[in-house]
Design a protein around this nucleic acid. Sequence first.
DNA 1: ACCCACTTGATTGACGTACCTCAAAACTGG
DNA 2: CCAGTTTTGAGGTACGTCAATCAAGTGGGT
Lengths: 340, 340
Amino acid sequence: MGKPTVHDIAKEAGVSLATVDRVLNARPGVRDKTIARVQQAVERLGYVRDTYAANLARQREYRFAFILPEGSSQFGNGLKAALQEAYSHMADRTHLNVVRVPQNDPHAIVRTLRSLNTDRLDGLALMVPETPQVRDAVSRLKDAGLAIVTLVSDLPNSRRDFFVGVNNVAAGRTAGLLMGRFVKRTGQILVVTNSVSSRDSLERRLGFDTVMTSDFSHLTVLPTVESHGDPDRMARIVKQVVAHRRRLIGVYSMGSGNTTLLSALQACGQLQDLIVLAHELTPAMRKALQNDEVAAIIAQNVGHLARSSLRALRSLCDGVPIFEPQERVRIEVVLRENLP
Amino acid sequence: MGKPTVHDIAKEAGVSLATVDRVLNARPGVRDKTIARVQQAVERLGYVRDTYAANLARQREYRFAFILPEGSSQFGNGLKAALQEAYSHMADRTHLNVVRVPQNDPHAIVRTLRSLNTDRLDGLALMVPETPQVRDAVSRLKDAGLAIVTLVSDLPNSRRDFFVGVNNVAAGRTAGLLMGRFVKRTGQILVVTNSVSSRDSLERRLGFDTVMTSDFSHLTVLPTVESHGDPDRMARIVKQVVAHRRRLIGVYSMGSGNTTLLSALQACGQLQDLIVLAHELTPAMRKALQNDEVAAIIAQNVGHLARSSLRALRSLCDGVPIFEPQERVRIEVVLRENLP
DNA sequence: ACCCACTTGATTGACGTACCTCAAAACTGG
DNA sequence: CCAGTTTTGAGGTACGTCAATCAAGTGGGT
């Protein structure tokens, strides 16, 4: 016995194929009583619509846009590459449009969101900092009928349908636990980031501090210092801290700009006995792990992010439930020995 | 412009649809010259067969069997559950048959493999210890035309098509690195397993030792002790070691039976300042992580294993390339704070 | 009893592919 | 150049679903 088809449903419900079709596709012109009869037949036979046959008949096309951070961000580049790769493999009837906007320009982001032609789009994935304007723009796009998933950085109080990414508080807690377990003596820990205003940084810091104070209170965590994406500023700060804090034992980098941080530390000759933790497995960090300059990277797999967001958008457009276990992105601890 | 179809190929090659079909499905009765012409047209247009439409027309059914370890193995149970879950979601036209055999009975495994009706099976996934007899059985099944993937534990010199699982040497190296970084003082490390004869244990031990000798030579790694799946034996061994070695600082458990190990350690009152590392995230290990009885778990995601093996089997049956980045299972480091 | 709106059935033609048949065309050897 | 064989073309049916059309049926209001 194969899977039941619409024909089986029609027979079981004692109605015609046309009526089954009207019910299944929520077309008008069917009595409530008949609708119920068909639905009961669906239940009884355990019918599930063959999505591929349906898409084939319907000539379905998925048109998705991705909004990713622009420019120097290694992570953004990696994500885009992963997206292209995933797309090239899972691209039955889907059209992809990747737009990159500067993360630090909220205005540009909103402008981009507004400029999207919602008639030519079925779904949108976006990785952008959280602002009220962005939330509004998302709301407008949702009204236009788009499926919307947030990527990496969530917009919790927006009308997005799904979030693909990790819990950044937990990621920060993971960093805290690793730091506490890795350092061999007591001392001070430097925390750096690009900008504390981005949601991921805030959440990571929160998680990091929670674990440090509750489990490793003998260690001192210094206030977050911001580089604002400026290499010179980063170098200056690191120099200052190294000069003033002679008991520096660890550095936790919450955002991007890790390459800059590393070279600044190298310049100070401080890398040997320092525990350095950072986020996201860029090519530079991969190398740093291999050279033992970085103890561990807390990462999320960009390939996974790409595939999950594509699958989630498709499920949303098809109106089928998202297979959550598959789309749950894990907080990966990457060491020299388990580099993927 | 949509994707090219068989019709486009026919037009481009200047042949009929029937001929295109004969070429694409390797049916006889086509001149070499014509075959080449069609293939060139395929190349030029970048035609890719729509697998779903093809399966629809062909009434394709995938019939897969999974051979998993039997019995007490928590990991086996978890994998089976994950398989059922993945199956319930990805089960268009596929039939699944999960068979469980005792891992420590090579004869039973071979008997099971021989008893498979190859006429009613398209693919096979197996997680079994490596023996020459198993390799032979795999060879026989391959001759019968089955797609074969190994799961978790590879059969490197067999005729399997694909391996879904982690590099166990690297997993052992990861454990070694974690152990070296986690312990705060010098001392001795106990390594336990069920049975050193299984391939994963051997490889993990190899990786562990490599890292310990090259990077942490100040630590002493004791010879592997085997429990042979016997809780009493495990308890006795742990008691002995704890009594004799007063500088015990860490325990590395390479196989299953972690619950037994933990209760034995607890009974000796030795859990507080001991770094315990183990493999596979079973419910018991999840709890042990939360209670800080275990410092880290080196794991592979069972959901990923399940989905990847199903997808790999399908790709093999369809004769399409496996999407490797998606099926590469990662060595996960699971801590209290990044528990999935 | 009649009209009209609503509901249902029957039928058809896609979608991209597989697989089958029958006949026509193109080659081959002698 | 013929007979025989091989190769090719044209066409049909099917898979499970969508979408549309048209005819026929139902019932209520007046």
